[in-house]
């Protein structure tokens, strides 16, 4: 199944996502720190990354840009509790797979991740 990374400045939020996705057989690594997450991606290009928009040190949009530089084929799902047209537009421009809103329900999350994994496989071909 998929190799997935979650970055959220709130640990509990990341763990909830991990629990849901692990039940679907995915392998999920959770980070609360941007730099550690970037380091992980550089050595370990995950298939899907789920990013919060409000992080501790940088914005989720900047993180998206850095992450795409480090691993262009990683499909990124932005997941935010503070949606704005501006961040939605920037995310799209920077190649995010989708822009989702918290609270997200289990089914929607599973669907988005399945979609992102499929898109990643197509992109790799």
């Amino acid at each position: 199944m998929g190799d997935i990374m979650v970055l959220d400045d709130v640990l509990d939020a990341g763990i909830m996502i991990k629990r849901i996705l692990e039940r679907k057989g995915h392998q999920v690594t959770v980070f609360t720190d941007e730099l550690e997450a970037l380091e992980h991606v550089r050595t370990h290009p995950v298939e899907v990354a789920i990013l919060d928009i409000r992080l501790k040190k940088m914005s989720g949009v900047d993180m998206l840009e850095e992450l795409k530089k480090a691993s262009p084929l990683t499909q990124v799902i932005m997941l935010t509790g503070y949606p704005t047209l501006e961040t939605a537009r920037q995310s799209k421009e920077l190649g995010a797979f989708d822009y989702c809103i918290k609270p997200i329900d289990k089914e929607e999350l599973e669907e988005k991740v399945a979609g992102a994994l499929a898109a990643g496989k197509v992109a790799a071909q």
Partner: peptide, 12 residues
């Protein structure tokens, strides 16, 4: 507040 933000976004 979290539900409200999500709702405003959905309606928009």
């Amino acid at each position: 507040e979290s539900l409200l933000r999500a709702l405003l976004w959905s309606v928009e």
